[in-house]
Amino acid sequence: MIFDNLESAKSFYKRYALACGFSIRKATQWKSRGIIQGKYFVCSKEGQKAVKEVDTLNEEHQPKQKRRKPSQRTGCEARIRYKIVFVPFTGINNHNCNVTLGAALLGNETAETYTWLLKSFKDAFGYAPKVLVTDQDPAMKRAIEDVFPDTRHKLCMWHIIDKLSGNVGSKLCNKTDFKERLCDIVWTDHITPDHFEQHWAGIMHDFHLTEHEWLSDIYQLRSSWIPAFYRDEDMSGLMRTSSRSESENHFFGKFFNPRTTLVEFLAHFDSAIEHQRHEHRRNDHDSRYKAPETWSNFPLEK
C-alpha cells in the first residue's frame, strides 16, 4: 500500500492493530542526508528484551534490589514499513549554477512511478527537456524512453566513475596509474571518439582487463557518457564537471536534519528554494552592476 505521508501510514496501522487486538510502536528508521527514507511500525510485543549480564562474584557489580517486571516482548513480527524517495530536478541557470526546477516525493522507484513523474513534469513545463542526465537506473531509463522519446538521455559520468574502485578493486586504482590514465580520456572533451577508443583499448590491454564484464558494459554505453562523443554539443557543463546531482543533494542537506518530519521537510524545502532564488538575484545584481575580476594582465581582459 502507498500512503501520502508518515502520519497516514501510522494512523492506518494503528486502526488495523486495534481491530486485531494489539498495539503498535515506532521502530527502526533510516535516513539519507537528513531525509527519512524508510521507517518501520511494529507490534508493541516485537523483539525480545535485552538481558544484562552481571558478574555475581564481583561485589561492585551486585545489582540493586529491584522489583522484577515481566517483559512484554514476545518476538511478534507484525510490522508496517513507510518509505519515500526524494527526487529533485536540477538544471543550470545563466550563472552556471544549479537551479531546482522541481522535486517530488515518491513511494517507490518503479518505471510506472517514474513515468507518472515525468508526465507531471512535462505537463507543468509544457515541453520536454532537450537533454536529461541521470544515473543508470533501468526504471528511469524506461520512463524516459516512454515520456521523452526525443530527449537526449545521457548518463552521469560522476556516478559511473564513482563505481570504478568497487568494480575493479581499490588496489588497481590506488597502487597503479590505471585510474589516472582512464580519467585522462574520460574527463575531457578535447579528444575525438577514435582517440578515446584507441587509448581505452590500450589501457585495457596493459592491465589485462579486456574481458572485464563491468568495464565492457560501460564501454558499450560510451556514447551516452563519454564527452568525446558529444564534444560538439552544448551540454552547459552538465557532465564535464563532478556530479550536479550530488551537489544538489549537499545543498538540501544543509536545510534538513536527521529528526526532520515530513511536515517539517516541506517547510525546510521552501526555505531551501528561497535561498536558491536569493542567490540567483544576487548573482544577477553582481553581473549587472559590478565589474568582473581580471584573471590575467592580457589586454584582452582589460
Score class of each variant (00 low, 15 high):
Phe3His: 02
Ser8Gly: 14
Ser11Pro: 06
Tyr13Cys: 04
Tyr16Trp: 11
Tyr16Gly: 06
Leu18Cys: 13
Gly21Ser: 08
Gly21Val: 03
Ser23Ile: 06
Ser23Asp: 11
Thr28Cys: 12
Arg33Phe: 12
Gln37Phe: 03
Lys39His: 13
Val42Ser: 11
Val42Ala: 08
Cys43His: 06
Ser44Phe: 09
Lys45Met: 11
Lys45Ala: 14
Gly47Gln: 08
Gly47His: 10
Gly47Thr: 08
Val51Glu: 08
Thr56Glu: 12
Asn58Gln: 05
Lys64Asn: 14
Lys66Tyr: 07
Lys69Pro: 01
Lys69Met: 07
Gln72Trp: 10
Gln72Val: 14
Thr74Tyr: 05
Gly75Gln: 13
Gly75Arg: 07
Cys76Gln: 07
Ala78Thr: 09
Arg79Ser: 12
Lys83Tyr: 07
Lys83Val: 01
Ile84Gln: 06
Ile84Trp: 04
Phe86Ala: 01
Phe86Ser: 08
Val87Leu: 09
Thr90Gln: 06
Gly91Asn: 05
Ile92Trp: 08
Ile92Glu: 10
Asn94Ile: 02
Asn94Gln: 08
Asn96Glu: 10
Asn96Cys: 13
Asn98Met: 05
Val99Gly: 07
Val99Met: 13
Ala103Leu: 02
Gly107Ser: 03
Glu109Lys: 00
Thr110Met: 01
Trp116Gly: 00
Leu118Pro: 02
Lys119Ser: 06
Asp123Lys: 01
Ala124Leu: 04
Phe125Thr: 12
Tyr127Arg: 07
Ala128Ser: 11
Pro129Val: 00
Leu132Trp: 01
Val133Met: 02
Gln136Leu: 00
Gln136Tyr: 05
Pro138His: 12
Lys141Ala: 11
Lys141Leu: 03
Arg142Trp: 07
Val147Asp: 01
Val147Ala: 00
Val147Tyr: 00
Asp150Glu: 15
Lys154Pro: 03
Lys154Arg: 15
Met157Asn: 10
Met157Trp: 07
Trp158Ala: 04
Asp162Pro: 03
Asn167Gln: 06
Val168Leu: 02
Val168Glu: 09
Val168Thr: 05
Val168Met: 04
Gly169Gln: 04
Cys173Met: 02
Lys175Met: 06
Phe178His: 07
Val186Asn: 10
His190Arg: 15
His190Gly: 11
His190Trp: 09
Ile191Ser: 15
His199Met: 15
Trp200Tyr: 13
Ala201Met: 09
Gly202Ile: 05
His205Gly: 10
Phe207Val: 05
His208Pro: 02
Glu211Tyr: 13
Ser216Val: 06
Tyr219Glu: 14
Gln220Ala: 12
Gln220Val: 10
Gln220Lys: 15
Arg222Phe: 05
Ser223Glu: 15
Ser223Gln: 14
Ser224Met: 03
Tyr230Asp: 05
Arg231Cys: 03
Met235Tyr: 14
Leu238Met: 10
Leu238Asn: 12
Arg240Asp: 07
Ser243Phe: 02
Ser245Gln: 12
Ser245Tyr: 14
Glu246Val: 00
Asn249Phe: 03
Phe252Ser: 07
Phe252Gln: 01
Lys254Asp: 09
Pro258Cys: 01
Val263Lys: 15
Leu266His: 15
Leu266Asn: 11
His268Val: 04
Asp270Thr: 08
Ser271Pro: 05
Ala272Lys: 06
His278Ser: 14
His280Lys: 15
His280Glu: 14
Asn283Met: 09
His285Lys: 15
His285Val: 08
Asp286Phe: 12
Ser287Trp: 12
Ser287Leu: 05
Arg288Tyr: 15
Tyr289His: 15
Ala291His: 11
Thr294Tyr: 09
Pro299Thr: 06
Leu300His: 14
Glu301Met: 07
